[in-house]
Design a protein around this nucleic acid. Sequence first.
DNA 1: TTGTAAGCGTTATCAA
DNA 2: TTGATAACGCTTACAA
Lengths: 347, 347
Amino acid sequence: MNSERTVTIKQIAKVAGVSFSTVAKALRGDPAINQKTRKRVVKIAGELNYYPNSMAQALRSKKTQTIGIILNDLSNPFFSDIYKVIADTLYQKGYSMLLSDSNYNLEIEKKNILMMLSKKVDGIIVSPVNENSQNNSLIINSSTKAVFIDISPKNIDVNYVFVNHEKAGYIATNYLIKNGHKKILLLNGPKNVSFSEYFLNGHMKSLKEHSLKPDSSLIMNCEPNIACAHDSFIELWEGRKKKPALAFTAVLTIGDLVAMGIYEAASELGIDIPEECSVVGYDNIFSSKYCNPPLTTIHQPKKRIGKWSIDILLKQLSDESMEHEKIIIEPELVIRNSVAALNTIKA
Amino acid sequence: MNSERTVTIKQIAKVAGVSFSTVAKALRGDPAINQKTRKRVVKIAGELNYYPNSMAQALRSKKTQTIGIILNDLSNPFFSDIYKVIADTLYQKGYSMLLSDSNYNLEIEKKNILMMLSKKVDGIIVSPVNENSQNNSLIINSSTKAVFIDISPKNIDVNYVFVNHEKAGYIATNYLIKNGHKKILLLNGPKNVSFSEYFLNGHMKSLKEHSLKPDSSLIMNCEPNIACAHDSFIELWEGRKKKPALAFTAVLTIGDLVAMGIYEAASELGIDIPEECSVVGYDNIFSSKYCNPPLTTIHQPKKRIGKWSIDILLKQLSDESMEHEKIIIEPELVIRNSVAALNTIKA
DNA sequence: TTGTAAGCGTTATCAA
DNA sequence: TTGATAACGCTTACAA
């Protein structure tokens, strides 16, 4: 809050020579107030540069007109696309937005949630780190309206909107196998992060269906950002040289940003993508189509996720009795040029 | 706010059998309170799942522990890189963050500012739409601590951190001219947006220094995003065919996202970059190095801008007497492969 | 060591 | 048509 005398209805009242409750009514256009006094009060308020103190309003009305958004990493275009739709809608509806990133970290997520509750947000949209975490109960027990995106608490009746990550891992792996890849490196997300687990499950399922033996040394965890992916891949590629038995021909990544990191490492190492190493992404962020070679990836409809989540939340806010909405979106493979067809080469 | 009975110190007081002010003191570890009662109170508070109402705290203390961030478009990686550093720092310092995008629109910006002031943020970081806008005065007159980034109010003593956009436009144009380009299309930002104006000035300055006549039909305005750039470029390329006199050989863009839009349009139109059309970006966002061809652009140190701005703001918050800090950063040309050298081809 | 009471800036009820 | 007053949940003198 600013240190200078902040203008309140009391100050206006003094200047206008009326009681402060008259000012309050005049300002909100209460018909009980005389037109003349109303105009005078409004004019003075304007001159004094008055704007109401939302803290006081919130304390009284028990409505803050602000929504809390907790995402994992807004510097990832996947999340910023979701963010954008939410932000625009919120603006139009006159809400403001408290925002924070959890960085795939349960501790941070917990503090973020507590902060949101303490700040009394009217509703929350959250991309939870883990489906089983106590953090989710924090939100649910607070009875603050919430929508879970990207993943949602398991076996609990809540609103959610997300893509079937298991299916994504499954179809991505299928595609790689169909192209003749047998040794696939999975550069997965962090451990204890549910969406990584689902993605892994899908991957395993495909492997199994194709009678391919999963190899734990071909499954690595990695923060979904360029730097981490870059470093991991360089290390992995070195290891690959030492253990030819593990020589992977393709990498499946948990996110396009991870794929970008691999592109960068490959460029430094002089590795040809896809000839020496195929890459599949996840998310279909804007840059995946521009990179070289254009990235084959799994699409997530980010804008629709954002739109759905905020629409559901706002509906819940206006209609107490509404049932929870549950939306699961099927992922789609987007074929571009980052996967080599091994069988045709060998043929 | 949640509709259920929210737990307050009064409720705890009732359960604990003490007065509510005793609870308040116990909770904040006041040494005047007996150890036993303190422990009992804390235990009960935990059991009841108590967390303080920030609205009430703010009303009393005149501190909200939240910072307002107003950026133009957080879905642009330029801004999300800045955001990220700010968000992480804020989290570490125990602040929360109210965020909103202005979308290069003065009306929206005004509402955003009013909202931040009304919500009584302790400080503001803003990337203003225009250096001369009244919106800036709104912030300054409120005497809320603020840091201006990307551009700053003209002739007013404030904190700011930004890159010399004029210089950026200047060195980019110089580079293009050095490579033999004489007809350069400037795909600039929106009108009435100061950073576009500075960029244009730099462009003009370079043209003039090289005795090249500026052509107003070679200066176009465009929202700094992919879609707008894509559409503009297609239209422009058609026009170029009709008026060969205007046939540009290069495009200078106000942002890498605009360059991406051109890449997309070029790919649809079957235009070879850089042979048929050179492109220069601005910002050096992460994807500019991965695209095909890698984009020649002007670097802005986004993380440093973010870090500086939040550090300055937090310092101002803790030290009343501090003088305003003013940081101008010199842009740097990053040469990659999106510019063809016309002179060598012709030679 | 604990309790009482005033006040932060609003809103809303009731009196005048 | 206007004004006095209580209340929202908390902090903080001050009194007990």
